[in-house]
Simulated assay, not measured.
Amino acid sequence: MKELDDWLQALADEVGFDPADVDVEAVLDLAGDAAHHVVRPAAPLTTYVAGYVIGLAAARGEEGTPRATEVLDRIAAFARAWGPTTA
């Protein structure tokens, strides 16, 4: 998606990160899982929380810190498992 790639590059230029570090498909999949298995407004909230958790882990710099993909996968699985008995 050219427009999405252009937007990611513009964001990277604006705030200073490497767009190659962003797994766009994983983030979009996570948003979809949250929207479909929880409630639509959970999509932006869930992706924000994932980024926050990844940022905290990176800032701590502790050994054994989870990688971004591990955090995204764990939160996506949690969202997919969400249901009336989970809430």
Rank of each mutant, 00 (worst) to 15 (best):
M1W: 02
K2C: 02
E3F: 03
E3H: 04
L4A: 04
D5F: 03
D5N: 12
D6C: 02
D6Q: 10
L8H: 05
L8R: 04
Q9L: 08
Q9F: 04
Q9I: 00
A10H: 07
L11H: 00
L11R: 07
L11K: 05
D13W: 10
E14C: 07
E14L: 10
V15R: 11
G16F: 08
F17G: 01
F17M: 04
F17N: 02
P19W: 04
A20T: 13
A20C: 08
D21M: 14
V22K: 12
V22Y: 10
V22Q: 09
V22E: 06
A26P: 09
A26Q: 06
V27C: 04
V27L: 07
V27M: 07
V27H: 03
V27F: 06
L28M: 12
L28K: 12
D29S: 13
D29W: 06
D29H: 11
L30V: 05
L30C: 08
A31K: 07
G32A: 14
G32F: 08
D33Q: 12
D33P: 07
A34L: 08
A34T: 10
A34R: 11
A35I: 08
H37V: 06
V38T: 13
R40S: 10
R40E: 07
R40K: 14
P41A: 08
P41K: 08
A42F: 05
A43S: 15
A43I: 07
P44I: 09
P44T: 09
L45E: 03
T46Q: 09
T47I: 02
T47N: 00
T47P: 05
A50E: 08
A50I: 07
G51Y: 13
I54E: 12
G55W: 14
L56M: 15
A57V: 03
A57S: 14
A58V: 01
A58Q: 06
E62P: 00
G64C: 10
P66M: 01
P66Y: 05
R67T: 01
R67P: 00
R67V: 00
R67H: 01
R67K: 05
A68D: 12
A68Y: 03
T69P: 05
T69E: 11
E70K: 14
E70F: 12
V71F: 14
L72R: 08
L72C: 07
D73T: 10
D73P: 03
R74W: 05
R74S: 12
I75A: 04
A76Y: 01
A77S: 15
A77M: 11
A79N: 11
A79M: 12
R80H: 06
R80G: 05
A81H: 09
G83S: 00
G83H: 00
P84E: 09
P84W: 04
T85G: 06
T86I: 03
A87E: 00
